[in-house]
Amino acid sequence: MSDRIFGVVGILISIGYVFAALAIEESFLSDAVGPKAFPLIIAAILGISSLVIALRPDAEPAWPSLARLVEIAAAVVVLILYAEMLPVAGFVIATAFAAAYLAWRLGSSLLEAVLTGIGTSVGIYVIFHLVLGLSLARGPFGF
C-alpha cells in the first residue's frame, strides 16, 4: 500500500513539474532546444517510474510506531528552531541545547545529555573556530 501511495504522489509531483515547466517564460534569445525541453523529459521519466512503482509495489516497508514518528517530527522541529536561533543566540549556546536534546532523545540520562551538549558545542567551537579559524555564528556574547 505504501508504495502505491508513493507512486501516486510521484505522479502528482511530475504533473506539477510539467505545469511549472510550461510556465517558464521563454527568453527572446533562445537556443534551438530552449529551457523547457529537458525538464519535460525529466518529468516524463519521473511520471513513468512513479506509475511503475504504483502498479508493481514492493513489500511493505517497516513503518515505525506513531510514538517514533512523533519523535522524529519533534527532532525536526528542534533542528528548525536551532537553524533559526543560530544567528540570534550564537553558536555555542544554540548548539549546546540542540546537541543535548538529541542526546537525551537517543536515550542519555539528563546529566549525560547536558554534558554531551556542552561538550559537543565547546569542542566544536575550540577545534573549528579557535584552532582552524572557521567562522561560526556569533551571538550576543561574541560566541
Binding site: 533542528l79 542526546a103 542519555s108 559537543t120 566544536i124
Partner: peptide, 30 residues
C-alpha cells in the same frame, strides 16, 4: 551512538553554515 549522533548532526550544521552563513541553507538541509 547517543553521544556520537548529536556530534554528527552538529558537525553537519557547522559545515553547511560555514559555506554560506545562511539559515535558509540549513532549513533546506533539514
Amino acid at each position: 551512538s547517543r553521544i556520537l549522533m548529536p556530534i554528527v548532526a552538529m558537525v553537519s550544521f557547522v559545515g553547511i553554515y560555514g559555506i554560506s552563513g545562511s539559515t535558509f541553507d540549513l532549513l533546506v538541509m533539514i
